[in-house]
């Protein structure tokens, strides 16, 4: 049993069953991501751990103790919300000190700890400012500082970066990961952004319709999706039914669907024969520039396949050009669900 243990958690909102029996463990010191589209139940599970929602059935335990019915304030859990959670009438320092005041920590200890943590999140010069004087990114740093200064057993992050623009987001992802590792803080992170999950996590749990679809390390999740849903949610997989795949490649496969990452597709102009690879013939129907990558869409036997090729000016393909694709057989993922 892990540091945090969820045992067969069900949560209904009236007729709507949001969690349908989640059993999950989180190891001490890990950063675990709950990934999934909106409405999949990932935030609800987080809120059940925080005590902000009562579970319909099942048990939650933390550090060996059953906390299913403990008040949120007595659970020893810190949380960062999506947005708007700083107290607008309090300065940055007062916000950060709030939790310590609640614990009746001595005044001088509080001011020392607040100064320390603000330094860690890089906001030591903003201590006396008010939330509305800060940018969204700075506000979330304060929220993070406020949550970890009380040294909670677990830190919960509920889509903390989704209201922040793309560039700043990258920096904050790295920074949160660094702070989490420095403190060895057990952290659960909720997001719907697969790239974010890949960058930050020790373990990813992919949620789908109130159940865990797949769990694993980022690499496992990326290279070995277990289902059509997992393959479509993570990476930019080409997903073809077995019949379509046969139309394109001429070879039969024994499964329901086939998943092919676009970056393993090679585009050759000459005929090459190799039995370790699938071969397809087709015509370029679309091209899209992704900066350093070119994504070509090739129509093979009536089926569209995406292929990512590193951008090289001298090797650009034209729409309508006839090409041959080759894909290493071991890289093709056969899905059965």
């Amino acid at each position: 049993m892990g540091y945090i243990h969820f045992e067969n958690i069900h949560k209904d909102f009236g007729q709507n069953k949001v969690l349908k029996g989640i059993t999950m463990d989180v190891e001490r010191g890990h950063l675990v991501t709950l990934l999934g589209p909106s409405g999949c139940g990932k935030s609800t599970l987080l809120r059940c751990l925080a005590g902000l929602e009562e579970v319909t059935s099942g048990t939650v335990s933390l550090d060996g103790k059953d906390i299913t019915h403990v008040n949120p304030r007595d659970r020893g859990i810190g949380m960062v919300f999506q947005q708007y959670s700083l107290f607008p009438n309090m300065s940055v320092a007062q916000n950060v000190a709030f939790g310590l005041n609640m614990k009746k920590v001595p005044k001088d200890t509080i001011s020392r700890k607040v100064a320390e943590i603000l330094k860690i999140v890089g906001l030591e010069d903003k201590a006396e400012q008010y939330p509305n004087q800060l940018s969204g990114g700075q506000q979330q740093r304060v929220a993070l500082a406020r949550a970890i200064v009380t040294e909670p057993k677990v830190l919960l992050l509920d889509e903390p970066l989704s209201a922040i623009d793309a560039k700043l987001r990258r920096n904050l992802q790295v920074e949160i990961r660094r702070i989490q590792q420095d403190f060895g803080m057990t952290t659960i992170f909720v997001t719907h952004d697969q790239d974010e999950a890949m960058v930050m996590s020790d373990v990813i749990h992919l949620f789908h319709n109130g159940l865990i679809e797949q769990s694993g390390t980022p690499t496992e999740m990326y290279t070995q999706p277990v289902s059509k849903f997992a393959a479509s949610f993570i990476g930019n997989y080409n997903i073809l039914s077995a019949a379509d795949f046969q139309k394109a490649s001429g070879e039969a496969v024994d499964c329901a669907d086939v998943a092919i990452r676009p970056e393993i597709v090679r585009i050759n102009l000459e005929v090459a024969d190799e039995s370790k690879r699938f071969h397809m013939e087709g015509e370029v129907v679309n091209s899209l520039s992704h900066g350093n990558l070119m994504r070509y869409t090739i129509l093979c036997g009536g089926v569209e396949i995406n292929a990512d090729i590193m951008f090289e000016k001298s090797h650009l393909l034209e729409i309508g050009q006839k090409v041959r694709l080759s894909i290493r057989k071991t890289n093709v993922i056969l899905l059965n669900s």
């Binding site: 925080a50 902000l52 949120p72 304030r73 859990i77 810190g78 949380m79 919300f81 947005q83 708007y84 959670s85 700083l86 107290f87 709030f98 939790g99 609640m102 614990k103 929220a143 406020r146 949550a147 009380t150």
Partner: peptide, 13 residues
Amino acid sequence: PTLIEAAEMLGAS
């Protein structure tokens, strides 16, 4: 609601 939840998570009733 978010403000109250945030305060609760920090130990307030």
